[in-house]
Protein backbone atom coordinates (compact mmCIF):
# COMPACT_ATOMS: atom_id res chain seq x y z
CA UNK A 1 0.00 0.00 0.00
CA UNK A 2 2.64 2.45 1.10
CA UNK A 3 4.77 1.76 -1.96
CA UNK A 4 1.77 2.30 -4.17
CA UNK A 5 1.04 5.62 -2.55
CA UNK A 6 4.58 6.79 -3.05
CA UNK A 7 4.55 5.65 -6.65
CA UNK A 8 1.30 7.47 -7.32
CA UNK A 9 2.57 10.62 -5.65
CA UNK A 10 5.72 10.57 -7.74
CA UNK A 11 3.68 10.20 -10.89
CA UNK A 12 1.51 13.11 -9.81
CA UNK A 13 4.55 15.27 -9.21
CA UNK A 14 6.08 14.39 -12.53
CA UNK A 15 2.86 15.18 -14.33
CA UNK A 16 2.44 18.50 -12.59
CA UNK A 17 6.07 19.37 -13.08
CA UNK A 18 5.66 18.97 -16.81
CA UNK A 19 2.47 21.00 -16.72
CA UNK A 20 4.03 23.87 -14.85
CA UNK A 21 6.60 24.14 -17.57
CA UNK A 22 3.94 25.27 -20.00
CA UNK A 23 2.31 27.81 -17.76
CA UNK A 24 1.46 30.88 -19.76
CA UNK A 25 1.95 34.55 -19.40
CA UNK A 26 -1.58 35.77 -19.39
CA UNK A 27 -1.42 39.33 -20.52
CA UNK A 28 -0.22 42.33 -18.69
CA UNK A 29 -1.75 44.96 -16.49
CA UNK A 30 -0.98 48.60 -17.16
CA UNK A 31 -2.60 51.94 -17.73
CA UNK A 32 -6.23 52.91 -17.62
CA UNK A 33 -7.35 51.64 -21.00
CA UNK A 34 -10.38 49.54 -21.75
CA UNK A 35 -10.01 46.07 -20.30
CA UNK A 36 -10.54 43.09 -22.51
CA UNK A 37 -10.85 39.52 -21.27
CA UNK A 38 -10.20 36.69 -23.70
CA UNK A 39 -11.82 33.45 -22.55
CA UNK A 40 -10.57 30.30 -24.26
CA UNK A 41 -12.10 26.86 -23.88
CA UNK A 42 -8.71 25.36 -24.58
CA UNK A 43 -5.32 26.92 -24.11
CA UNK A 44 -2.82 29.07 -25.94
CA UNK A 45 -0.16 27.36 -27.95
CA UNK A 46 -2.39 25.49 -30.38
CA UNK A 47 -0.79 27.47 -33.26
CA UNK A 48 -4.32 27.62 -34.64
CA UNK A 49 -7.71 28.82 -33.47
CA UNK A 50 -6.91 30.07 -29.96
CA UNK A 51 -3.59 31.61 -30.92
CA UNK A 52 -5.35 33.44 -33.72
CA UNK A 53 -7.83 34.90 -31.22
CA UNK A 54 -4.93 35.95 -29.04
CA UNK A 55 -3.34 37.80 -31.95
CA UNK A 56 -6.53 39.87 -32.17
CA UNK A 57 -6.33 41.13 -28.59
CA UNK A 58 -2.58 41.67 -28.93
CA UNK A 59 -3.27 43.85 -31.94
CA UNK A 60 -5.99 45.71 -30.05
CA UNK A 61 -3.54 46.35 -27.26
CA UNK A 62 -1.00 47.73 -29.66
CA UNK A 63 -3.29 49.84 -31.78
CA UNK A 64 -6.14 50.74 -29.44
CA UNK A 65 -4.23 50.81 -26.17
CA UNK A 66 -6.47 48.34 -24.39
CA UNK A 67 -5.36 46.07 -21.54
CA UNK A 68 -6.17 42.41 -21.74
CA UNK A 69 -6.01 39.15 -19.87
CA UNK A 70 -6.38 35.64 -21.19
CA UNK A 71 -8.57 33.18 -19.29
CA UNK A 72 -7.67 29.65 -20.35
CA UNK A 73 -9.94 26.77 -19.37
CA UNK A 74 -7.61 24.12 -20.76
CA UNK A 75 -10.64 22.04 -21.72
CA UNK A 76 -11.64 21.58 -18.09
CA UNK A 77 -15.44 21.81 -18.09
CA UNK A 78 -15.42 22.76 -14.43
CA UNK A 79 -13.67 26.01 -15.34
CA UNK A 80 -15.87 27.25 -18.19
CA UNK A 81 -18.27 29.01 -15.85
CA UNK A 82 -15.61 30.28 -13.44
CA UNK A 83 -13.30 31.71 -16.07
CA UNK A 84 -16.14 33.43 -17.88
CA UNK A 85 -17.37 34.95 -14.63
CA UNK A 86 -13.87 36.07 -13.68
CA UNK A 87 -13.34 37.63 -17.07
CA UNK A 88 -16.68 39.40 -16.79
CA UNK A 89 -15.73 40.76 -13.38
CA UNK A 90 -12.46 42.08 -14.73
CA UNK A 91 -13.16 43.33 -18.21
CA UNK A 92 -15.27 45.78 -20.14
CA UNK A 93 -15.21 43.63 -23.24
CA UNK A 94 -15.09 39.86 -23.05
CA UNK A 95 -14.18 37.82 -26.11
CA UNK A 96 -15.35 34.23 -25.77
CA UNK A 97 -13.78 31.57 -27.97
CA UNK A 98 -15.00 27.99 -28.15
CA UNK A 99 -18.24 26.20 -28.95
CA UNK A 100 -18.14 24.86 -25.38
CA UNK A 101 -19.56 28.16 -24.15
CA UNK A 102 -22.80 27.70 -26.07
CA UNK A 103 -24.89 27.31 -22.89
CA UNK A 104 -23.10 29.92 -20.82
CA UNK A 105 -23.23 32.72 -23.41
CA UNK A 106 -27.00 32.68 -22.98
CA UNK A 107 -26.78 33.08 -19.19
CA UNK A 108 -23.80 35.02 -17.95
CA UNK A 109 -24.07 38.17 -20.14
CA UNK A 110 -27.48 38.91 -18.64
CA UNK A 111 -25.81 39.14 -15.24
CA UNK A 112 -23.25 41.64 -16.50
CA UNK A 113 -25.23 44.14 -18.62
CA UNK A 114 -22.41 46.68 -18.58
CA UNK A 115 -19.95 44.24 -20.14
CA UNK A 116 -19.89 43.66 -23.87
CA UNK A 117 -19.37 40.12 -25.14
CA UNK A 118 -17.93 38.97 -28.42
CA UNK A 119 -18.67 35.33 -29.15
CA UNK A 120 -17.02 33.84 -32.18
CA UNK A 121 -18.36 31.00 -34.30
CA UNK A 122 -21.98 31.60 -33.47
CA UNK A 123 -25.03 33.34 -34.84
CA UNK A 124 -26.98 34.15 -31.71
CA UNK A 125 -29.02 37.31 -31.96
CA UNK A 126 -31.10 39.30 -29.56
CA UNK A 127 -28.93 39.59 -26.48
CA UNK A 128 -28.09 43.30 -26.31
CA UNK A 129 -24.57 42.98 -25.00
CA UNK A 130 -23.55 39.97 -27.09
CA UNK A 131 -22.11 40.34 -30.56
CA UNK A 132 -21.58 37.05 -32.31
CA UNK A 133 -19.12 36.56 -35.12
CA UNK A 134 -19.87 34.12 -37.89
CA UNK A 135 -17.34 33.20 -40.55
CA UNK A 136 -17.93 32.00 -44.06
CA UNK A 137 -15.63 29.01 -43.53
CA UNK A 138 -17.28 27.49 -46.56
CA UNK A 139 -15.95 30.27 -48.80
CA UNK A 140 -12.39 29.95 -47.63
CA UNK A 141 -12.58 26.18 -47.69
CA UNK A 142 -13.83 26.37 -51.26
CA UNK A 143 -10.45 27.79 -52.19
CA UNK A 144 -8.65 25.18 -50.13
CA UNK A 145 -10.66 22.43 -51.82
CA UNK A 146 -9.88 23.86 -55.22
CA UNK A 147 -6.16 24.01 -54.50
CA UNK A 148 -6.17 20.47 -53.11
CA UNK A 149 -7.91 19.22 -56.23
CA UNK A 150 -5.34 20.91 -58.45
CA UNK A 151 -2.42 19.43 -56.54
CA UNK A 152 -3.58 15.91 -55.77
CA UNK A 153 -3.35 14.66 -59.32
CA UNK A 154 -0.02 16.36 -59.99
CA UNK A 155 2.23 13.31 -59.87
CA UNK A 156 5.27 15.44 -60.57
CA UNK A 157 5.21 16.30 -56.90
CA UNK A 158 6.84 13.58 -54.84
CA UNK A 159 4.30 11.52 -52.92
CA UNK A 160 1.24 12.46 -54.98
CA UNK A 161 -0.68 9.72 -56.72
CA UNK A 162 -3.09 10.08 -59.58
CA UNK A 163 -6.13 9.19 -57.46
CA UNK A 164 -8.76 11.85 -57.36
CA UNK A 165 -9.05 11.68 -53.60
CA UNK A 166 -8.51 14.30 -50.95
CA UNK A 167 -9.22 14.15 -47.23
CA UNK A 168 -10.17 16.28 -44.29
CA UNK A 169 -9.72 15.74 -40.54
CA UNK A 170 -12.35 17.63 -38.58
CA UNK A 171 -12.15 18.29 -34.85
CA UNK A 172 -15.76 17.52 -34.15
CA UNK A 173 -18.82 16.95 -36.23
CA UNK A 174 -20.37 20.29 -35.35
CA UNK A 175 -21.96 22.93 -37.62
CA UNK A 176 -18.84 25.10 -37.84
CA UNK A 177 -16.69 22.23 -38.98
CA UNK A 178 -19.42 21.01 -41.34
CA UNK A 179 -19.26 24.43 -42.92
CA UNK A 180 -15.60 23.88 -43.71
CA UNK A 181 -16.33 20.49 -45.16
CA UNK A 182 -19.15 21.60 -47.42
CA UNK A 183 -17.06 24.41 -48.92
CA UNK A 184 -14.00 22.22 -49.27
CA UNK A 185 -15.95 19.59 -51.11
CA UNK A 186 -17.63 22.12 -53.40
CA UNK A 187 -14.26 23.72 -54.21
CA UNK A 188 -12.70 20.39 -55.12
CA UNK A 189 -15.62 19.41 -57.31
CA UNK A 190 -15.53 22.81 -58.98
CA UNK A 191 -12.07 21.93 -60.27
CA UNK A 192 -12.89 18.31 -61.06
CA UNK A 193 -16.40 16.88 -60.55
CA UNK A 194 -14.91 13.39 -60.08
CA UNK A 195 -12.93 14.48 -57.06
CA UNK A 196 -13.72 12.41 -53.99
CA UNK A 197 -13.53 14.07 -50.56
CA UNK A 198 -13.19 11.79 -47.52
CA UNK A 199 -13.86 13.42 -44.15
CA UNK A 200 -12.97 12.01 -40.71
CA UNK A 201 -13.76 13.50 -37.34
CA UNK A 202 -11.20 13.11 -34.55
CA UNK A 203 -13.77 14.08 -31.92
CA UNK A 204 -11.24 16.23 -30.18
CA UNK A 205 -9.69 19.65 -30.73
CA UNK A 206 -6.80 19.13 -28.33
CA UNK A 207 -5.31 15.75 -29.09
CA UNK A 208 -2.62 15.52 -31.79
CA UNK A 209 -2.49 11.73 -31.35
CA UNK A 210 -6.06 11.42 -32.59
CA UNK A 211 -5.26 13.75 -35.46
CA UNK A 212 -2.33 11.64 -36.50
CA UNK A 213 -4.38 8.49 -36.32
CA UNK A 214 -7.16 9.95 -38.48
CA UNK A 215 -4.75 11.39 -41.04
CA UNK A 216 -2.92 8.08 -41.34
CA UNK A 217 -6.21 6.40 -42.17
CA UNK A 218 -6.94 8.98 -44.86
CA UNK A 219 -3.48 8.69 -46.43
CA UNK A 220 -3.89 4.92 -46.44
CA UNK A 221 -7.11 5.31 -48.35
CA UNK A 222 -5.33 7.18 -51.11
CA UNK A 223 -5.86 10.80 -50.17
CA UNK A 224 -2.57 12.68 -50.60
CA UNK A 225 -3.74 15.98 -49.20
CA UNK A 226 -5.56 16.27 -45.92
CA UNK A 227 -7.18 19.46 -44.73
CA UNK A 228 -6.68 19.69 -40.95
CA UNK A 229 -9.62 21.49 -39.37
CA UNK A 230 -9.09 20.49 -35.78
CA UNK A 231 -7.17 23.07 -33.75
CA UNK A 232 -4.34 21.47 -31.84
CA UNK A 233 -5.45 18.05 -33.03
CA UNK A 234 -4.33 19.23 -36.47
CA UNK A 235 -0.70 19.09 -35.41
CA UNK A 236 -1.04 15.32 -35.51
CA UNK A 237 -2.15 15.57 -39.11
CA UNK A 238 1.01 17.52 -39.96
CA UNK A 239 3.13 14.94 -38.20
CA UNK A 240 1.53 12.13 -40.16
CA UNK A 241 2.06 14.08 -43.39
CA UNK A 242 5.71 14.55 -42.62
CA UNK A 243 6.32 10.93 -41.64
CA UNK A 244 4.43 9.46 -44.59
CA UNK A 245 5.68 12.02 -47.11
CA UNK A 246 2.20 13.29 -47.85
CA UNK A 247 0.62 16.73 -47.73
CA UNK A 248 -1.66 18.76 -45.56
CA UNK A 249 -3.52 22.03 -45.55
CA UNK A 250 -3.48 24.07 -42.36
CA UNK A 251 -6.26 26.06 -40.79
CA UNK A 252 -7.12 29.26 -38.88
CA UNK A 253 -3.65 30.83 -38.98
CA UNK A 254 -1.08 30.53 -41.73
CA UNK A 255 0.41 27.31 -40.46
CA UNK A 256 2.92 26.69 -43.23
CA UNK A 257 5.79 27.69 -40.97
CA UNK A 258 5.20 24.57 -38.85
CA UNK A 259 6.49 22.42 -41.67
CA UNK A 260 6.66 24.04 -45.13
CA UNK A 261 7.72 20.74 -46.73
CA UNK A 262 4.39 19.07 -46.11
CA UNK A 263 1.91 21.86 -45.42
CA UNK A 264 1.11 23.19 -48.86
CA UNK A 265 -1.07 26.11 -47.75
CA UNK A 266 -3.50 27.20 -45.06
CA UNK A 267 -7.08 28.28 -45.04
CA UNK A 268 -6.85 31.20 -42.70
CA UNK A 269 -9.84 32.12 -40.63
CA UNK A 270 -8.97 35.50 -39.24
CA UNK A 271 -10.51 35.13 -35.80
CA UNK A 272 -7.97 37.62 -34.47
CA UNK A 273 -8.78 40.18 -37.10
CA UNK A 274 -12.50 39.90 -36.42
CA UNK A 275 -12.04 40.16 -32.67
CA UNK A 276 -9.83 43.18 -33.17
CA UNK A 277 -12.33 44.83 -35.43
CA UNK A 278 -15.29 44.19 -33.16
CA UNK A 279 -13.33 45.55 -30.20
CA UNK A 280 -12.61 48.62 -32.26
CA UNK A 281 -16.29 49.12 -33.12
CA UNK A 282 -17.30 48.63 -29.47
CA UNK A 283 -14.65 51.11 -28.43
CA UNK A 284 -15.99 53.62 -30.90
CA UNK A 285 -19.49 53.06 -29.60
CA UNK A 286 -20.78 52.06 -33.01
CA UNK A 287 -21.87 48.57 -32.13
CA UNK A 288 -25.39 47.51 -32.91
CA UNK A 289 -26.85 45.56 -29.97
CA UNK A 290 -27.46 41.86 -30.32
CA UNK A 291 -26.30 41.36 -33.88
CA UNK A 292 -24.26 38.85 -35.82
CA UNK A 293 -21.17 40.07 -37.66
CA UNK A 294 -20.29 38.09 -40.78
CA UNK A 295 -16.80 37.50 -42.05
CA UNK A 296 -16.43 36.00 -45.47
CA UNK A 297 -14.07 36.33 -48.38
CA UNK A 298 -15.37 39.80 -49.12
CA UNK A 299 -14.57 41.01 -45.60
CA UNK A 300 -11.20 39.25 -45.80
CA UNK A 301 -12.28 37.23 -42.76
CA UNK A 302 -11.23 34.01 -44.47
CA UNK A 303 -8.70 33.37 -47.20
CA UNK A 304 -5.64 31.44 -48.24
CA UNK A 305 -2.19 31.66 -46.71
CA UNK A 306 0.85 30.54 -48.68
CA UNK A 307 3.52 31.19 -46.08
CA UNK A 308 6.53 33.32 -46.85
CA UNK A 309 8.50 33.53 -50.09
CA UNK A 310 11.51 31.61 -48.78
CA UNK A 311 9.35 28.50 -48.41
CA UNK A 312 9.03 25.95 -51.15
CA UNK A 313 5.84 26.78 -53.07
CA UNK A 314 3.71 23.89 -54.21
CA UNK A 315 0.98 26.21 -55.41
CA UNK A 316 2.24 27.60 -58.68
CA UNK A 317 1.64 31.21 -59.75
CA UNK A 318 -1.00 29.95 -62.20
CA UNK A 319 -2.81 28.12 -59.46
CA UNK A 320 -2.72 31.18 -57.22
CA UNK A 321 -4.08 33.27 -60.06
CA UNK A 322 -6.86 30.80 -60.66
CA UNK A 323 -7.75 30.81 -56.98
CA UNK A 324 -7.77 34.60 -57.06
CA UNK A 325 -10.17 34.39 -59.97
CA UNK A 326 -12.44 31.97 -58.09
CA UNK A 327 -12.35 34.31 -55.10
CA UNK A 328 -13.52 37.22 -57.22
CA UNK A 329 -16.32 35.08 -58.58
CA UNK A 330 -17.42 34.09 -55.08
CA UNK A 331 -17.38 37.69 -53.87
CA UNK A 332 -19.34 38.79 -56.89
CA UNK A 333 -21.82 35.97 -56.40
CA UNK A 334 -20.99 34.28 -59.68
CA UNK A 335 -20.05 31.17 -57.79
CA UNK A 336 -22.48 30.25 -55.07
CA UNK A 337 -20.82 28.32 -52.24
CA UNK A 338 -23.13 25.95 -50.33
CA UNK A 339 -23.22 26.46 -46.56
CA UNK A 340 -23.01 23.83 -43.87
CA UNK A 341 -24.45 25.78 -40.98
Amino acid sequence: MKKRIIALALVAILVSATLIGCGSDSGTVSGEGTKVGLVLAGGLGDRSFYDSANEGVEEAKEKLGIDFKVYECRNDPSLYNDQMVQASQYADIVAVVGHEFGDLILEIPTEFPEVHYIYVDSEIEGIDNVTTVSYAENEGSFLAGALAAMLTTDTSIEGMNADKKIGMVGGMDIPVIRNFLVGYEAGAKYIDPDMEVIPLFAEDFEDPAKGKESATVLYDRGADIVFAVAGKTGEGVFEAAKELDRYAIGVDTDQRYINPESIVASMVKRVGKSIYEVIEIVENGDIEPGKVVYYGLSQDGVGMGYGTDDMVQYATEEMKAELEDIKTKIVSGEIEVPAGK
Binding site: I13, V15, S16, I20, S24
Partner: peptide
Protein backbone atom coordinates in the same frame (compact mmCIF):
# COMPACT_ATOMS: atom_id res chain seq x y z
CA UNK B 1 1.43 32.58 -11.44
CA UNK B 2 0.44 29.37 -13.21
CA UNK B 3 -2.39 27.51 -11.50
CA UNK B 4 -0.36 24.33 -11.89
CA UNK B 5 1.61 25.47 -8.87
CA UNK B 6 -1.27 24.08 -6.85
CA UNK B 7 -0.75 20.65 -8.39
CA UNK B 8 2.81 20.76 -7.18
CA UNK B 9 1.64 21.73 -3.70
CA UNK B 10 -0.90 18.91 -3.63
CA UNK B 11 1.60 16.36 -4.82
Amino acid sequence: IPSELVLVIQS
